[in-house]
Each structure stands twice: as structure tokens, then as C-alpha cells.
């Protein structure tokens, strides 16, 4: 029971950390200054959320563990993040679409989690929800802008859908530890919301795509190792170094 909760919290922590790290790669490289600031703001929000989850997981695990050890000293196979969030940034369109798919999912999920019987999980989720509203509004506006924009932006969005859609199914396949909320029940609403935004963007909704899974169980695409190599470098090279 306790282990299930710990694993679930770590899954939420890892997912938000890895997406924060990916978005932070845009720092100084955004298409225009305001959007560079927007994507890094979202990164910071996600990092804050992941810290809250890691801190809570550390309390549940007990002993001498802490948020930093959980983020910097676990190996690839121990990370339980969604495959979607570890996918490369690609171009701006791919980053936008990844953020939109995730924010739409995170919004529906956290709406449920804020009513969790676990008080701390509920508190973190309720707080994060206020931030997610901004991420969702911002990313869905961008999907429409690019999907319904120029021939070039549209073709890039089509490519991004082709690249990322296969990683969206995993969100709704519950892991053994995801007992706090009925994940499957979110699928229909997520698809309806995405359908609405895609219709507004004149983008096609893919059908019959084989869905990749495994991230929640620690089986990742080749990209996660590279992310962790960079993220954990200082702690691995200089163990126990502090800021």
C-alpha cells in the first residue's frame, strides 16, 4: 500500500522533472524573447511541482533520502516518467504539441487528484492546477496558431503529430501503483478536448496508431539516458557536492 503511493508520487515527480528539463533546453533559444520566457516559466512551474512531489516521496521513504538524491542519484530504469515527456524538443511545433498533450492530460488528472484522500497529494495537485491552467491555455493557442497558420507551420505540426501521438496512449494505461485515481476514465475527455483543438487548427486526429508503453515501469526510449547524463552530471562527477 505504502509502496504503491511512493511509486505513484515518484511517477508524478519524474514526469514533471523530465518535462521541466526538456523545456529548459529552450532557455536562450526560443523563437522570440517573450516565448523563450514563456516556455522557461512553464519549465520552472514544472520543476517546482516536481520538487513538491520529491519532497513528499522523501518523507514517505524516510531514512536519509531527500529530494536531491531522488532526482540526481536514481538510474534510468528507476525513473517512472511518461515516455511523452522525454521525447526530444524537435522544432518549436513539436515542443508545443508535446506540452499541449501533456498539459491537457495533467489538467484532467490533477482535477481528480486535488480530491485525493491523501492530503498532501491533494494539496500539491490543487496548487499546481492553478499553474497548469496557464500552460494549457498557452499551448493550445499555439497549436491552433501553428496548425492553422502557414503551409510550413502546418506541415511541421503534422510531422509532430506523427512523432508524438504514439506516446499519448500510455497516459491512460494505469500502472499497478496508479490507484489514487481512475486513469482510464480520463481518456475519453482528453480525446474530446484534443479533437476540439485539432478541429480548430484543421489538424487531423490520427487513428489506429500502435501505442508505446513502458515509461511508467522504467522502460524508456533511448532519449532518457542522455537527459539524465546531463541532469545528473555534477552529482555523478563530484559526489555530494553542494551548491
Amino acid at each position: 500500500m505504502e509502496n504503491k503511493l511512493i511509486d505513484h508520487i515518484l511517477h508524478l515527480a519524474d514526469t514533471t522533472l523530465i518535462l521541466a528539463q526538456r523545456n529548459a533546453e529552450w532557455c536562450g533559444h526560443g523563437p522570440i524573447l517573450e516565448q523563450d520566457i514563456a516556455i522557461t516559466n512553464i519549465s520552472l512551474d514544472l520543476l517546482g511541482q516536481s520538487r513538491n512531489f520529491y519532497q513528499y516521496a522523501a518523507i514517505l521513504i524516510g531514512g536519509d533520502t531527500d529530494e536531491d538524491k531522488l532526482a540526481y542519484l536514481r538510474k534510468e530504469r528507476e525513473f517512472k516518467n511518461l515516455l511523452l515527456v522525454e521525447q526530444p524538443n524537435g522544432d518549436w511545433g513539436q515542443t508545443i504539441l508535446r506540452q499541449y498533450f501533456f498539459s491537457q492530460y495533467q489538467y484532467l488528472l490533477f482535477e481528480k487528484l486535488q480530491n485525493s484522500k491523501d492530503e498532501q497529494l491533494a494539496a500539491i495537485s490543487a496548487k499546481a492546477l492553478k499553474e497548469i491552467k496557464y500552460h494549457l491555455r498557452w499551448s493550445s493557442e499555439w497549436v491552433v496558431r501553428l496548425g492553422d497558420g502557414t503551409g510550413e507551420s502546418r506541415s511541421r505540426m503534422l510531422k509532430a503529430i506523427d512523432e508524438l501521438w504514439r506516446y499519448t496512449g500510455e497516459m491512460f494505461v494505469p500502472a499497478a501503483y496508479e490507484t489514487a485515481v481512475d486513469i482510464i476514465s480520463l481518456k475519453n475527455e482528453w480525446e474530446q478536448k484534443v479533437k476540439t483543438i485539432f478541429e480548430e487548427s484543421s489538424l487531423p486526429l490520427p487513428e489506429n496508431v500502435f501505442m508505446q508503453t513502458g515509461g511508467k515501469q522504467g522502460v524508456h526510449t533511448e532519449h532518457l539516458g542522455y537527459i539524465l547524463a546531463e541532469l545528473q552530471y555534477v552529482q555523478r562527477a563530484y559526489p555530494n557536492s553542494t551548491w
Binding site: 517573450e34 516565448q35 520566457i37 516559466n41 520552472l44
Partner: peptide, 9 residues
């Protein structure tokens, strides 16, 4: 409005 995100969160 220029951007919903500014110099701080």
C-alpha cells in the same frame, strides 16, 4: 497583453 508569462512566475 504581450505575454501571459513575464520576468517572474
Amino acid at each position: 497583453l504581450i505575454s501571459e508569462f513575464g520576468s517572474t512566475a
